[in-house]
Amino acid sequence: MNRSFPTITIDLVLNRNIAKDVMRAVLHSILFHRLFGTVKEQIFEILDVTMPGVDDPEIKRIVDEKVDAFWKGVEGGTTKHGQITVTLSEKRARKSWFSTGEEEVPWEQWNVTAEIRQPISDRERQKFDLDLASALTKSLKLMLDYASSEQGRAAVPPITNAIGISPFPVKMTVKIGGVEIA
């Protein structure tokens, strides 16, 4: 059975000097709003925008790994835009005649697309920073509005395992120019 699931997209245009910090803050903020275990909070300050994060060694490792892969992909390639996708799934018993076990069934996906640009003049950089701060504020509002909306609450499957920081598997993938990278 193929069930459709909500996909939320956040589009950003980033200054290369703070691109890694912004991507890290956005991914942490998504996880902060969608993890259901006991979350120790962390704060990210990006261009006077305060974004919540998750202070957990495993989450930090995964986010850093994916942001570094994204950065290497855009810096080393010809294309200066890419995407990090966060997929939240639930584990269900596999329904087939000859196999048993569990499968991960997605219930929500967040696509963070980013393009790296380098402002040339100081005036251009100031406008760029103002636009990025506005985009971060809008993305944070989107996260809050969606997570607290009826649709956002309805997307969450029943929590049957309350062990750990997340009762649901979280998978992150990085695509640069439409090609998935490790």
Rank of each mutant, 00 (worst) to 15 (best):
F70D: 00
F44D: 00
D56M: 04
D48F: 08
K40V: 12
I43M: 13
I62N: 08
E45K: 13
K60H: 15
I59G: 02
K40Y: 14
E58R: 13
R61H: 11
K66Q: 09
E41G: 08
I62Y: 05
I46D: 00
G37M: 06
A69L: 08
A69F: 06
E41T: 10
E45A: 09
G53H: 07
D64R: 09
D48E: 14
V49I: 07
I59H: 04
K66L: 04
V54W: 04
D56T: 03
F70H: 03
D48K: 14
V39H: 05
F70V: 01
A69V: 08
M51K: 01
D64W: 05
K60L: 12
D48W: 06
F44E: 00
D48S: 13
D68L: 10
E65N: 13
P52H: 04
V67W: 01
D55F: 10
W71I: 08
Q42C: 08
P57I: 00
E58K: 15
L47S: 02
D56A: 06
P57V: 02
D68S: 12
D68G: 07
E45V: 10
V54Y: 01
K60W: 10
K60F: 11
I46Y: 00
A69M: 07
V49H: 03
G37S: 05
T38G: 12
I62L: 14
D68Y: 10
G53R: 05
E45N: 14
E58Q: 15
P52A: 04
E58I: 13
V39M: 07
I59N: 05
Q42M: 13
E41D: 10
E58G: 09
F70Q: 02
V49Y: 03
